[in-house]
């Protein structure tokens, strides 16, 4: 399984688009927001947390169709399915590789982008914490969506359509952590729900995604 992880990371680095693409997209969303809503700190500051979460989610969405599509096209998914590794493991590792190439860089870069949006300093820690807790769920759910659409040509748009409603709870609780933190409210419930969704996704989604892959390959 580590072999799949290192291979996926190596492929992401070699093809160039891996780490950079979603970060670039995140940057675009963040930079364009002030142009759209105005540069005043009193406008930007309250929405900064939400915009950053939205940007992270969209950036994540952008790279989902690469999770299985390439392996499906060149036949490696067939070969992996006949390999002595359970499909659940393959799916989990694929999601982990996706998180390492998108979720993790987004989490690390978010504070820097927070500066651009006048995010209050007190919220920087919460933003990073909520993204670190929430983005694994985004990768996991996205992997499930990618597994559902594995055999479909040009399934990218359909994938977004399927995954978007599933992302809603993560987005709400993630952004809520930051918002409540800024307003000085208790963040524990939102944080716990966020962690719960992530833990639940990691525990249960591999089974659903693996079942979908097996169906998609036949």
């Amino acid at each position: 399984m580590i072999a799949i992880l290192t291979r996926d990371l190596r492929l992401a680095i070699r093809s160039g688009g891996g780490f950079g693409l979603s970060l670039m997209f995140f940057l675009i969303v963040v930079v364009l927001t002030p142009f759209a809503v105005g540069p005043e700190p009193q406008i930007l500051s309250p929405i900064a947390g939400g915009i950053l979460w939205l940007g992270a989610m969209l950036a994540c969405l952008l790279s989902l169709d690469r999770i299985f599509a390439l392996d499906y096209e060149d036949g490696s998914l067939d070969l992996l399915a006949t390999a002595p590794i359970p499909m659940e493991g393959i799916v989990t590792v694929k999601a982990l590789a996706h998180w390492l190439t998108t979720g993790l860089p987004l989490t690390l870069a978010a504070p820097a982008f927070g500066l651009l949006l006048d995010l209050p300093f007190s919220a920087f820690g919460l933003l990073t914490l909520s993204l670190a807790l929430g983005t694994p769920a985004l990768s996991m759910i996205g992997t499930f969506g990618a597994a559902l659409t594995v055999g479909i040509k040009r399934g990218g748009l359909l994938l977004s359509l399927l995954v978007l409603p599933l992302y809603v709870p993560t987005l709400i609780f993630g952004a809520e952590v930051v918002r409540r933190g800024i307003e000085g409210l208790s963040i524990a419930p939102a944080l716990m729900m966020l962690a719960g969704i992530t833990a639940g996704s990691i525990a249960l989604i591999p089974f659903a995604a693996a079942a979908a892959i097996r169906v998609g390959l036949r």
Partner: peptide
């Protein structure tokens, strides 16, 4: 069973050695 279908399951950005080593580690 070792199965070989119509496609070879190769990664074009990996070298010959890396491609084979990957499968060696998988198996």
């Amino acid at each position: 069973i070792a199965y070989a279908g119509h496609s070879d399951g190769l990664k074009s950005t990996l070298t010959v050695q890396e491609n084979l080593l990957f499968w060696a580690r998988i198996y």
